[in-house]
Write a protein that binds this DNA or RNA. Structure first.
Lengths: 142, 142
DNA sequence: GGAGGCCCCTGTACTCTACAAGTCTTGCTC
DNA sequence: GAGCAAGACTTGTAGAGTACAGGGGCCTCC
């Protein structure tokens, strides 16, 4: 099979598997998958504008706005009119939001740890390196 | 950073990037992401029951049933009462469904090909091997 | 100071999802 | 064979996430 086909099949299967795990975790946890995603992104990048967030997540700005409304209602983020540019909205985590992001991160780490355990010890470094390279490539495309 | 953390972060980022690409493709194409997913799974595995499909996708059987209803309405799959077990439903692709699955597969391959192009030539085999290993691990968990 | 453009939010409609409850089928027990 | 528990599927209901269209506020450049 050509490399392109193997690559595409593998990526589709990975997406499927990761989606499945995300749904399992969502059923168990207290925040929705998209909320978790958004929280973690803000935690990583610090303050963001709505449109920047939308771009990073690959969603429509209107969708990002609505998602943020939910997080704001839950008291996990705070929105404030941008200080330099009044059109923008600065999004920041509240203390509760920071704790939630932390908890989400820990949950993800432990959920994925059992996966890593199944990777033969000698292969782990290679798998992680490959994934990080893939992330870099994915970010370039976005 | 510990391997577990690197692994978790990378997987989350990969999931995010793949989700973004899936949404871009959905906006362009004629079938929804979940329909594409379902079609491809049936194309890979042949005839399936509703609950098997649900398990493979990691979704609730009721959700799988509803998704199949949409595909049936679109004339892409056919449902038939199971011959051995009357409780089950055998799901098969129609000729149109087979063509649609093919087209979805080609679309995915070409969408991902540009990603693979950005991976340095010498790394490609390693990345693909790592992904295939990851798929195996993900399937074990499910 | 006006015009056009950008950022954000809201209205609307659709997909995907899960949980609960109901129907039909099977298989087991008596 | 009758009854009954368990399984597979579907439908009722509710909620999250998504995109496109449109409107209001703010910035920039002329």
């Amino acid at each position: 099979m050509a490399d392109q086909d193997r690559f595409a099949r593998a990526l589709l299967a990975v997406a499927r598997g990761l989606g499945r795990i995300a749904r399992e975790r969502a059923r168990a946890g207290d925040v929705t998958p998209q909320q978790a995603e958004t929280l973690q992104l803000i935690a990583e990048r610090g303050a963001l504008s709505t449109s920047t967030l939308a771009t990073l997540l690959g969603i429509d700005p209107s969708t990002a706005s609505r998602n943020l409304s939910g997080l704001e209602r839950a008291g996990l983020i705070a929105r404030q009119k941008g200080s330099d540019d009044g059109r923008q909205t600065d999004v920041r985590l509240t203390p509760r939001g920071r704790r939630a992001a932390q908890s989400v991160g820990n949950g993800a780490t432990s959920a994925f740890a059992s996966l890593l355990d199944r990777v033969p010890r000698g292969e782990r470094a290679r798998v992680i390196d490959a994934l990080e390279l893939l992330v870099k490539v994915l970010d370039q495309t976005g």
